[in-house]
Computed example of a mutant assay.
Amino acid sequence: MSDSVYITVGIPFYNAEKYLEDAICSVIAQTHKKWELILLNDGSNDKSLDIAVKYSLVDKRIRVISDGVNKKLPNRLNQIIQESNYDFIARMDADDLMSNDRLEKQLKILKNNKEIDFVTTGCLTIGKDNELTGVSEGRDYQMSAANILEGVTNILHASLLARKNWYIRNQYNETIVQAEDFDLWLQAAKNNDLNYIVIKDPLYWYRVVENVTIEKIVNGYNAQIEIINNNYDGVIFYISKYKIIKKFKIKKVIVKSLDTMGLLKILLKRRSNRYNKEQLDYYNDHFTKIQSVRVQG
């Protein structure tokens, strides 16, 4: 790839020693080589920071920022925007992976569509031992504020590649944790500033098994309910708001019941479809490349 455009990749991390190295290698293995990687420590007390520093010492494109404080994800995402040196910013979570050509394909779309502010992708789902567990292809349509309030989204937050100037106009509400992306899409849509494309291809690999916990699900639903209550006026009617919130409350009851019965894993299966042999071969080929750039020691 000879493209001269640089991208800032931001990975905030908190106690991610089990998966952070592979996430870093996932960036190093990209076909698009013009990038800086900001590894932003959110007060980890495991070996995550040591891993980040190890890679920064062998690759000058990698920068580690650590202040020893746990400020939570929305704060750190805003910090990455402030620290970024380039006009395109890519999101990634510390326990996930991505295909080798993710940045190349997303950047091409942004360059060819000047009116578009960001690009997201479909995803593969992976398990705790990097095994492929499913696939969820991206669906390309534009959400309205009313769509977002209903709680159904086609945007995979962690796969975002956005123009920096859009991020400057649309920063995260640092008081909202667990639903910061839901609020971001909603506020942007209300301001007529939500213009994006979703790539069907599963370029991002989401570690669902580590992210689906009863605490995260319930806290996420509670945060969404609060956001809906604070933002429905002028977007949807009160009766619609009432129905949407009732739906979220029912979801909370369901997930709590599943958790009590030890069946929360059912939600994992519902989040993705069965993968085929072609997708498995694709995953294995790209994962082999990721593993090949690991630093020894």
Rank of each mutant, 00 (worst) to 15 (best):
Met98Tyr: 07
Val135Trp: 14
Val135Glu: 12
Ile81Val: 15
Glu104Tyr: 14
Lys111Gly: 01
Ser136Tyr: 13
Leu124Asp: 12
Thr120Trp: 02
Thr133Glu: 05
Tyr86Gln: 00
Arg91Pro: 03
Asp129Pro: 02
Gly122Lys: 03
Asn113His: 11
Leu132Ala: 05
Ser136Gln: 15
Thr121Met: 00
Val119Tyr: 10
Ser99Gln: 08
Arg91Tyr: 09
Thr125Val: 00
Gly122Val: 03
Thr133His: 01
Met98Phe: 13
Thr133Ile: 09
Thr133Cys: 08
Thr121Gly: 01
Gln106Met: 12
Gln82Asn: 13
Glu83Arg: 10
Ser99Met: 10
Thr121Pro: 01
Leu110Ala: 06
Cys123Phe: 14
Asp96Lys: 07
Lys105Val: 06
Ile116Glu: 10
Asn85Asp: 13
Ile89Tyr: 09
Asp129Cys: 09
Asp95Gly: 04
Asn100Ala: 00
Val119Pro: 04
Leu132Val: 01
Val135Met: 15
Leu103Ala: 04
Ile80Thr: 08
Leu107Gly: 05
Thr125Gly: 07
Ala90Ser: 07
Asp101Lys: 13
Asp93Gly: 00
Ile80Asp: 07
Arg139Asp: 13
Thr125Arg: 08
Glu137Asp: 05
Leu110Asp: 06
Lys114Leu: 11
Lys128Pro: 14
Ser84Phe: 09
Tyr141Thr: 12
Asp129Leu: 12
Lys111Met: 08
Asn100Trp: 03
Arg91Ala: 01
Gln82Thr: 13
Leu103Ser: 05
Glu104Val: 10
Asn85Ile: 11
Leu97Phe: 00
Leu97Asp: 03
Asp95Ala: 05
Asp95Glu: 04
Lys105Asp: 03
Met98Pro: 04
Ile80Phe: 10
Ile89Phe: 11
Ala90His: 05
Leu132Cys: 01
Ser84Asp: 06
Asn113Trp: 04
Lys105Arg: 15
Glu83Thr: 10
Gly122Glu: 02
Arg102Asp: 02
Thr120His: 00
Glu137Ser: 06
Gly134Asp: 08
Gly127Gln: 09
Tyr141Phe: 15
Leu97Lys: 02
Glu115Arg: 13
Glu83Tyr: 12
Lys105Gln: 08
Gln79Ile: 08
Gly138Arg: 02
Leu107Asn: 06
Leu132Ser: 06
Glu104Leu: 15
Asn85Ala: 13
Gln79Trp: 11
Arg102Val: 13
Ala90Pro: 00
Lys114Ile: 11
Leu124Pro: 07
Asp87Asn: 15
Asp101Leu: 10
Lys128Gly: 14
Glu115Met: 12
Asp93His: 02
Ile89Asn: 10
Leu103Tyr: 07
Arg91Lys: 01
Asp93Lys: 03
Val119Leu: 11
Ala90Val: 01
Glu131Ala: 11
Glu115Gly: 12
Ile89Glu: 06
Ser136Val: 09
Ile126Trp: 04
Phe88Glu: 01
Asp101Pro: 05
Val119Trp: 08
Glu83Gly: 02
Thr125Tyr: 06
Thr121Phe: 05
Ser136Asp: 14
Thr120Ala: 04
Val119His: 07
Lys108Val: 12
Leu97Cys: 03
Leu124Trp: 14
Asn130Ile: 10
Lys105Asn: 04
Tyr141Asn: 09
Asp87Phe: 07
Lys114Gly: 01
Asn113Glu: 03
Ser84Gly: 14
Leu124Arg: 13
